[in-house]
Design a protein around this nucleic acid. Structure first.
Lengths: 108, 108
DNA sequence: TAAATCGCTTTGTATCGCAAAGTATTTTGT
DNA sequence: ACAAAATACTTTGCGATACAAAGCGATTTA
């Protein structure tokens, strides 16, 4: 164990995945984590995000390889479906465990 | 219950206290939450932050009224002590509960 | 007494999130 | 048939933020 990496202690919180840590994206991933697949409008309802914000966060999660985005037509209108990738699921689980470890083991 | 505030659902994650949410400050507050009082050097060790980063985050937490900073001389050298205010403790507890509610109630 | 160390603060830059504006198509009046 | 409104997003612009690096004043060591 070197000086800057320790299994116990809280310094590893600094390494929290920033792509997940942003509240808007945390919400998106939390929804996708349980429903497996959701369309753009459903996610807007669940998260309270605007079109613009959901769109840009969606792009970042896609670029990071955490979600897959499938665009199709539902009738005559465009429809965007999102789902977690395996990498996204793994990263979310890791993020979740790190935070739970910190927050659970506190007094009061 | 109006359309943009719901007691169940995850949209309230968007309101997470940003002053606490930043990993560097989350670490600082987590330490102060359990030790009540800590000096600058101890916090550097615990968090792995540099002087500059710890200094600026300390200032923001102080401006937000979450910590109290007391500067004194220990022998001939300056020494900076940090401690949580009541407001800081309350805000941290609220932040913690919000995140635990989200992260605890997930399957897998 | 010069150099290094301590204990920080301030500055500069690069990134990021959000709101607002823009795009393309479809549906709904009239 | 034509205009206006709605749907379903994407792109742009800007203000705020975080981090690294440079700076600073004092003290200790060689």
């Amino acid at each position: 164990m070197t000086s800057d990496e320790q299994s116990t202690g809280i310094a590893h919180i600094a390494d929290l995945d920033r792509l997940i840590h942003e509240p808007a994206r945390l919400m998106i991933l939390a929804v996708l984590y349980v429903v497996e697949s959701a369309d753009f409008g459903f996610l807007m309802n669940q998260t309270g995000l605007t079109y613009g914000n959901l769109s840009s966060h969606m792009s970042k999660l896609e670029e990071g390889g955490y979600i897959e985005v499938v665009k199709q037509f539902k009738g005559k209108r465009p429809n965007t479906m999102l789902s977690l990738t395996d990498a996204g699921r793994a990263a979310f689980q890791d993020y979740r465990q790190t935070l739970l470890d910190l927050l659970s083991d506190l007094p009061d």
